[in-house]
Design a protein around this nucleic acid. Sequence first.
DNA 1: CTTAGCACTCGAACACATAGAGTGCTAACA
DNA 2: TGTTAGCACTCTATGTGTTCGAGTGCTAAG
Lengths: 344, 344
Amino acid sequence: MLTERQLLILKVTVDDYIQSAQPVGSNQLSKKLETPFSPATIRNELAELERLGFLEKTHTSSGRIPSEKGYRYYVDHLLTPRPLPKEDIVQLRSIFEEKLTETEEIIKRSAMILSELTNYTSILLGPDVRRHIVKNLSIVPLSQDTAVAIIVTNTGHVENRVFSIPPGLNPSDIEKMTNILNERLVGVALNNLHLRLEQETLSILKQHVERYGELFHTFRQAVLLPHEDENIYYGGKLNILKQPDFHDLHKIRNLMDVMEEAKHIPMILPVGSQGLHIRIGSENTLTAMEDCSVITVSYDTGKEQTGSIAIVGPKRMDYKRIVSILDLLSGDLSKELNRMFKGT
Amino acid sequence: MLTERQLLILKVTVDDYIQSAQPVGSNQLSKKLETPFSPATIRNELAELERLGFLEKTHTSSGRIPSEKGYRYYVDHLLTPRPLPKEDIVQLRSIFEEKLTETEEIIKRSAMILSELTNYTSILLGPDVRRHIVKNLSIVPLSQDTAVAIIVTNTGHVENRVFSIPPGLNPSDIEKMTNILNERLVGVALNNLHLRLEQETLSILKQHVERYGELFHTFRQAVLLPHEDENIYYGGKLNILKQPDFHDLHKIRNLMDVMEEAKHIPMILPVGSQGLHIRIGSENTLTAMEDCSVITVSYDTGKEQTGSIAIVGPKRMDYKRIVSILDLLSGDLSKELNRMFKGT
DNA sequence: CTTAGCACTCGAACACATAGAGTGCTAACA
DNA sequence: TGTTAGCACTCTATGTGTTCGAGTGCTAAG
């Protein structure tokens, strides 16, 4: 068990290192502590903290830096979230100032403000498109052999895909098909659409639409998969380059690569989980992120749908500040989005 | 005027430096030349080429590297485009293999393939959305007070925007409005839409739609500006980090910053111009790009619409190869897109 | 005009010395 | 018994000197 003084020294050490990015020595600490102990005393404590695995040295005669275990302890027990400065709150709230009408816009904007405010990279995931509810379906013919299928969801999201239509098809058949689709599929979630399409509409189409087979087939193909990556929004991708912790070009490239790959996103932003989570260094599943810390938080958009936010920075991240910021934003975002879609 | 031999030496020097990124010395050149002159002779020529401003030294006793003037001369007079290797052609043509139905998809894919093939960054600009022709307009109500306006263009592009509707409006009025808009605005280009909206539809709406004022106002607001930056596609943004020429993190950040800013894009990709252009180093308008060369080419999509492609790399760029690649791709792209939209 | 020869220059790599920040340990102190 | 002053020690960062090699410019001979 750590003594009061050890806790204090650990806290101050981590705080100092987070702020300065320089190993912290006993002299510095001695000056900084409220109850000033001599450097020698502090050296003893530092040695003990190192023995316990909370601190590390970069080389034999250097000051101490927090180990991952140290950061973890700091985050779990020593984090005293202080209220955000007013100007930060103002800037965060500015997201909702200009009445944006689209979820997408608000999230985009949040990503930008977050990265400005934190100087780290922000990744935001919008509510899962696949759970949106179909509000309207339409088919607009473009040429002899192509048409565009448009699906509007309850959130105002619009999916659209060009598909080919069998040449020489009777235009009224397309209209009929549109009507049938709307009758049967409005109210269905996008991820069920495919299934329902066959169950509910195929037999009816058969009765009313000539050459339904070809048309149905290409249409079905078109609505098969919503673009999965268009739901990810980034802010401050280049902020990584600002961090003194990252100097190895190779690692930077790896990191940026991983973050942009849509397929890695679920590893960074655990989709299901609620609340705020902090992953430090090797606690991240992706090895490219072993030098990073990631703070994630979920927000909800009503109707049991959630989105999530991640801030990616160095392990030497300003945890206190980021936690406060994310707490505030996730709340605000939830409120705003719920307000927007209360009537849909 | 340069002698035959000087031309040869200049060409080989540039080629060699492009390939190795190392200053080129007289010994190396002597070995590499077909008619082998002694290093001493070559030194004399190099000195002359330097005096004329085509070559530079990094320090007094180093080999030579091309100056901007040198690159310019090389590009203008010494570039002998050789046919692309087969595998490159195969990879380029693979863009059109899987029959993509949307312009956007094809361009996205081109950006990716280009960056893979060149190891530089590619920026592609799609055909100017504002010149697309309205094919269909529709309004889908989402809730009591919001609706989404959807505009489909002849290219299959779909613009959509959520806007608010005055509460308590008669739903049939929205339908009426949609009909009127379709009657009057189909066939109009997006950039004229705003003007035509007022000229053609306002008076008719007045007659048929109750409380047309509020509805018209918010709808008008919604279709005001298409998102201008959604027409830019990047490939291999991180390839910059691969180039040995770029090591200064600060410059890299500036460069990447500039490229991602939509407002700078017109400076990189001159929208109006036809054909292939090469800008070397300080020939670029943006100071952040003074260490880069940019090769741009336009492609056409029929109906007098054009898009453009840029490859951004170091001044020490493989001009020969990139020019060949862009030549081929712009042709293929034009053909394919023209084919796709011949019937619209 | 070409080239061999040569003195010269500069950068990269390496060894070495020094200063400074920090440590651990011991012994003295309260 | 906990705290602290003192001291030897360690390691990094910085600067200096040396050497090696690649490359140059110039001169004089071919």
